[in-house]
């Protein structure tokens, strides 16, 4: 069945879509499938961009994924909310970095390091 365009989805549907993409990323990481991960990365950017474009920047809705059972979902939710909830997002990244759940723990640690070094600014 063909998916509706992102612009037709509710915020809740976009959040669910975001979580689904992150779980597929986790599978791709387990399979060391970097091509698949890259495709999913860009799909996730589209979903995040759609949430950002909604009135009031609806990326805050991703905060509901902070306690998701899947580490990749938590990691990506934290990353995507850095601009709208910086304190909570950094705390979540720190928690993941200390979780020993790899590769997400390493990715979270590197994200915090990159933020500290000013390599990129969340927008």
């Amino acid at each position: 069945m063909k998916r509706p365009p992102l612009s037709d989805m509710t915020v809740q549907e976009l959040v669910e879509n975001f979580a689904g993409i992150a779980m597929a990323q986790d599978e791709a990481l387990l399979d060391r499938d970097t091509s698949k991960f890259s495709r999913l990365f860009h799909q996730m950017q589209d979903v995040s961009g759609e949430l950002k474009a909604r009135p009031g920047d609806q990326r805050r809705a991703l905060l509901t994924l902070y306690d998701h059972p899947n580490a990749q979902v938590r990691l990506k939710a934290a990353d995507a909310t850095l601009a709208v909830a910086p304190k909570a997002a950094r705390e979540k990244l720190k928690e993941i970095a200390e979780s020993h759940e790899f590769p997400q723990a390493g990715d979270a640690g590197m994200a915090l390091w990159a933020l500290e070094k000013g390599i990129s600014t969340p927008t």
Binding site: F37, M110, I119, S120
Partner: peptide
């Protein structure tokens, strides 16, 4: 497996590196 984790991190796009793979950054 850590080697694969690290290599995978270098080889996948990353928001904190401007959407680039760290390898490309």
């Amino acid at each position: 497996l850590k080697h694969q984790d690290i290599t995978g991190w270098y080889a996948t796009p990353n928001e904190r590196f401007g959407g680039l793979r760290p390898r490309d950054y």
